[in-house]
Every structure is written in structure tokens, then in C-alpha cells.
Write a protein that binds this DNA or RNA. Sequence first.
DNA 1: AAATAATTGTTCTCTCTTTGTTCTTGGTTT
DNA 2: AAACCAAGAACAAAGAGAGAACAATTATTT
Lengths: 212, 212
Amino acid sequence: MQTNLTRKQQEVLDFLISNKDTFPHPPTLDELCLAMGLKSRGSLHKHIQGLINAGFVEAPNRKQRGVRLIEQTAADYTESPELPSKDQGTPFIGSIAAGSPIEAIPNISYMKIPDEIKTDNPCYILQIKGESMIDIGIFDGDWVIIEQQSHARNGQVVVALVDKTEATLKYIEQYPHETVLIPANKNMQAMHFAPTQVEIQGVLVGQMRSYK
Amino acid sequence: MQTNLTRKQQEVLDFLISNKDTFPHPPTLDELCLAMGLKSRGSLHKHIQGLINAGFVEAPNRKQRGVRLIEQTAADYTESPELPSKDQGTPFIGSIAAGSPIEAIPNISYMKIPDEIKTDNPCYILQIKGESMIDIGIFDGDWVIIEQQSHARNGQVVVALVDKTEATLKYIEQYPHETVLIPANKNMQAMHFAPTQVEIQGVLVGQMRSYK
DNA sequence: AAATAATTGTTCTCTCTTTGTTCTTGGTTT
DNA sequence: AAACCAAGAACAAAGAGAGAACAATTATTT
């Protein structure tokens, strides 16, 4: 048993360890793919195979029992403080209104939000000002959870920074010659830009509202 | 006795444990099928058989009928949940679809939600099935946070139990002679009831949605 | 009380989906 | 070039569900 893990194998192992409590059952390959953003079981399987050989993961003899850490591996990482693990929550960094820059609030606060409305990647929270997304149920005053990333697929809802000045939350459609930002509001118009004008700052992954 | 249960076996076991107090008699296979949404005794029987082999469920003898947990299994799960009473979050207890009873999920899970979308009083979480509240931005699949209380002011959104059987999330208007439940959906009709028919189970205080 | 009907646990077969596995292809990094 | 990695096709076995049939037991009717 040699501990010569490749970068990806290490990444998978880290993920398994840090999330071992969040899965109700040992995760299947498909579930792991989903959780880690992979699209192919086959690819993941090779990494798991490496972890099995290295002695970190149980060998599932063709049984459908999910990916299980060897007990020792799991135990090693339970009691170790594993850094202060200072998970203070998800940062609430300001408000966004169509057509203005993101208005940062003076001092960032943190909210504890459930995993169901965020992702495992870095996220932040914005408060919505305006009606530009009411057709998909995002109202004035709602909070949205944004996964921080700089790319998106067509049809996703993104925080887009236009001309480095105006930030909006819109559907995005990217073509070679132009980028279109589409509000979810029948009364508003789609806007067309040169691709270089639009910078993606994150994609929508969750939303919250208070009725108090 | 090794704990190599399949997912379904685990699900059945969880259901048995969390509902062991709600059955007057040990449930028969048919009753369990009904409660868990299965249609075939034969399928369930296989899972029960697995639980018997694993030592969680008593083997049936000719006399005593119904599915009974091994005493030890039952005991293990009775005293644990209550004691710590540490804040494990807000309970997610099931789904609500206009016109059906609240569908409880097998085992209650807990979500950590921010104070902003709940209150200081006891709250619980339901998942919405259906379109009856889309006009106020509550969509199919959304979670709602409900503050547990049995009264409400006119115009509030409440979880209402009608005739002790049907649960819905609606605006409420209470008058001496009648109670009106109003959906937030232009295409749906308000419903009128005698005040005694309608029982309030909580009022809406928050909402969440995932876009993953 | 005897006869009949309904319920219950059990076993079987058939079908469909899910899951682990293997391979091939092509891309990226070192 | 070599190692690493992603994607996807294809496959066998496991897992899971539906339903039929049957014997034993319990409930109901006659």
C-alpha cells in the first residue's frame, strides 16, 4: 500500500472524508459525480480504484453498496480537529439591483444556510432589489445564493457585470458574436452586448425569502 | 450481524423506528406497503427478510403477527434523540400538496436555516407540491418555513387542515360565519368553509428554493 | 358450530432500473 | 512521450417493484 495518490485521487479522497457525514448512505458513483461536478462514472471509477489499491476505500465486490471509506481512514479524520473548521456560514455581501453595481454593505455578515440551497463550492449571498426576475419567483427583497464562478452554460441565471460597472441577475445566452442577458419579467427587454462587455461573477443556486 | 443493509432495507428500518409508536399494533406487510407507498407485499417482504437476517426485526412466529423490531433495536433509538436537545436545526417533516394530508417523510431530517427566515418560536419545514401559491413566488418543490401556531390574522398565509384530512397552504380570511381559503393563483378559486371545518396548523414565515 | 370469506405471511416469476465495471476516444499537463 | 484525466458507450449483476398463487390463520356469516 503506497500513498502515491494523484492529484485527482487526493481530491476525491478529501471530498469523501469531509463529506462523509453529509451522505445518508455511502454515495454511489453517480452521486459522487454529481456532487463533484463530473459527468462520467467511468472516470470517477478509475480514481476510486486507485483509492482502493491505496487502502483508503473498501472494495465493493460488484455489490451496489456505495463508496465506503476504510474504517481506519474514516476514524483518522473524525477526532482530529482538522483545522479550527471555522465554518461561519455563507457571506452576505450586499444587494444587487438591475443596472447598478453591486452595493456592498459596510461589513459583511454571515448566514448559516442549509446545504440544500447551496453547493460545495464557494458561495455568497446577495439581496435582490427590483422586479427583474419575478417570473421565476425571485422578488424584491429576496436573498439569492450565488456560486462563485466565472463561466456559465446558456440558460443559467447569473450575476453578470456589464462594462465593469453594472451588475444584474439575469438569464444568460452566450454566442460567439454576442451575449444576451434576459430578465425573467415579461415587461422587460432582453439586452444584447459584445461578449467582452459581460463578465460572469457567479450562477444562481438558491433563494430565500422572509415573510415576517 | 453485520450492517450491510441495502438502501431500501435501511429506509424500511428507518421508517419502522421512527414510526414505531404510531402503530397501535405491529404493522402488517400490507399496512407498511400503504404507509410507504409500495404496491406489492412481495417486494416489501424481501426487505423485511433482509432486516430479519441482519437482526433488526423479529422473525415472525405463527402466533404474533405483524412486523416487530428487535427490542434492542427499538431501545437504541428511543432515548437518544430527545436527550441532547442541542440545536440540530429546524425539522423538515414532509410535503404539502393542496388537497391531500401532509405527507410525512419516513425519518425527519433537520435543516440549519438562518434566523432571517424563521422566528424564535417553534418552526418546521414543508416542501410544496403544486402551483397554488405561485403568484406570491412559492413554486412547486420550494421549501416553506412554518411557525407552529393555531391561530392567524386575516390575510396571513397559513397551513390549514380542512375536515381533519386535507392540508393546504393558503391565504386565510376568517369571519364569524365562514372561513375562506384563498390560493395565490389567478387560475384557482377561493374555497369557503364553516369555521369549524378549518384548523390552523401554522403560519408562513419563510421560504427557500434550490436551483441546483 | 360449521361453513365461508377475508387477511396475512410466503414464495415465485417477470420486468425494469440502478450500479459497478470495462473499454475506447480524445484532451490536457508535465 | 508519458502520465493523467474527462467523457461516453456498452454490459452484467444487483436491487427493486408488481403481481399471481398458495397455505395458514383469523374474522364473519350462516
